[in-house]
Design a binder for these strands. Structure first.
Lengths: 247, 247
DNA sequence: AACATAATTCTTGTCAAACTAAAATTGGCC
DNA sequence: GGCCAATTTTAGTTTGACAAGAATTATGTT
């Protein structure tokens, strides 16, 4: 099988060539997502290559998000989604830095992004976006003191980030908060915690409504700082026969 | 070769198992970066697997950043770096959205992050960091009107983002600007363009020095907005016998 | 001893053929 | 049409082989 050097880069192996051809096919719509890819033996014929070589190419497709295989089933076509790309990057980052340190770094990044989004929303949110934001705020208010507060908290933030209209930033937001639902901050007074958070949400909403860029920026910055620190709160020892802390 | 189901996930193929074992070895320091990995035949012995299976595992290692191979040479151990992770994610994002749209989305993300970084620097830059920032500003001043302005421009931004002390954010910044050096904005008056940019840098520096959080945020926001729009400027037709625009 | 070059060995990249277990398809019956 | 058994097909992996290039060893010269 002659491997041609396609450009000024290093010579590319046959599996690379096959994978790129299949990826181009998938991206062109030749294999809609979830349709089975051709069998390995068909691909051997099509590309005049051996089966182990084709298998290496298919493994590449899987790792690059263009195929889903496993559990002994036929590989199926897929398209990489921004969610998967960011999840992969997030997993790699956690591998490199460890859970705690990468968590802190990513939280700071979240802070910069959501503060920027609040700023942008105060500059240019339109009436439809403001209405959605208000609905999310009301649901957050109704959930004070209940188990749903966290999800409505996140929904308010998401509505705000959605104003920006940037799919990458929205997917980043979703990635940032995807582990937060399971982590309720340790607190003795859930009602008070919820009320503080809701009040800050309300201030942010009011600043956005009034086009107050500086206020929106400042309150969001403080809200996220306080919220993260609350989540870092160390669990407290039981002082008497109460239940142990919930973790 | 019996493949054991290691947890509640789908059964994993032998190459997956081998790749994970090698990755654990590399991460534990068993193979320092750039040392050759064991030969394929050695790995066949160690893992009691066939060579095509081992080759699939090695391909996995390469795609996950734990090995460097190619050009017919022995695979060498590597560790994924945050730079590589982000570059990979950036490439995927460009694949999904196309160059122009992903560029705009990423630029907005850059704006949120650098505005947040300016804000953070105004809050808490120490004397060492301020000194570095001042040096970068002076080099930017000295480069007005020369071909070095762009690199000193970027160096000033990098010095500012470095104040945050977040390796992910710094690597993101590097990724954002990595294509900018080659793209000088189309302009008839490079001197004037440089002077405007420098003056904005100076205002940002002054705000950071004075701990003026609001000013640092505002000037950086406007600086990045204007700068990006200047880079979006459409090329102009030649109005007389002058040279055509430079691109 | 140091260096250069040729010869030899080793290794990667890929091929062909085969086997096993599981998935998918086909055919028959109700 | 639905169900089930039988058959075929497919993925996962094995063994063995060859070609080209990289790496190592051996040899000769200064």
């Amino acid at each position: 099988m002659p491997v041609t050097n396609t450009s000024d880069t290093a010579p590319r192996n046959t599996p690379d060539v096959i994978a790129d051809a299949l990826i181009a096919d998938i991206r062109r719509g030749g294999f809609p997502p979830d349709t089975p890819l051709p069998t390995e033996r068909d691909l051997c014929e099509r590309f005049s290559a051996s089966r182990p070589t084709v298998r290496e190419a298919l493994a590449q497709l899987q790792m690059r998000g263009y195929a889903i295989s496993g559990a002994g089933k036929r590989p199926r076509a897929a398209l990489p989604s921004i969610t998967n790309v960011l999840k992969g990057a997030g997993d790699h980052i956690r591998e490199i830095f460890g859970d705690a340190e990468s968590g802190a770094h990513l939280e700071q990044m979240r802070q910069f992004i959501e503060t920027g989004a609040a700023r942008e929303a105060a500059k240019r949110a339109d009436n439809t976006q403001l209405t959605k934001l208000k609905c999310a705020l009301e649901e957050n208010f109704d959930a004070i003191g209940t188990a749903h507060f966290a999800t409505t908290d996140i929904a308010f933030h998401r509505a705000l980030v959605s104003v920006v209209g940037n799919p990458i930033i929205l997917a980043l937001h979703d990635m940032f908060v995807s582990t937060m639902i399971a982590h309720r901050p340790p607190t003795d007074d859930a009602m008070r915690y919820d009320q503080i958070a809701y009040e800050e949400h309300r201030q942010i909403y009011q600043a956005v409504l009034d086009g107050e860029v500086l206020t929106a920026t400042d309150v969001m910055d403080r809200h996220l700082t306080r919220s993260y620190r609350a989540r870092l709160q160390a669990p407290r020892l039981s002082s008497n026969g109460d239940d142990p802390p919930q973790h």
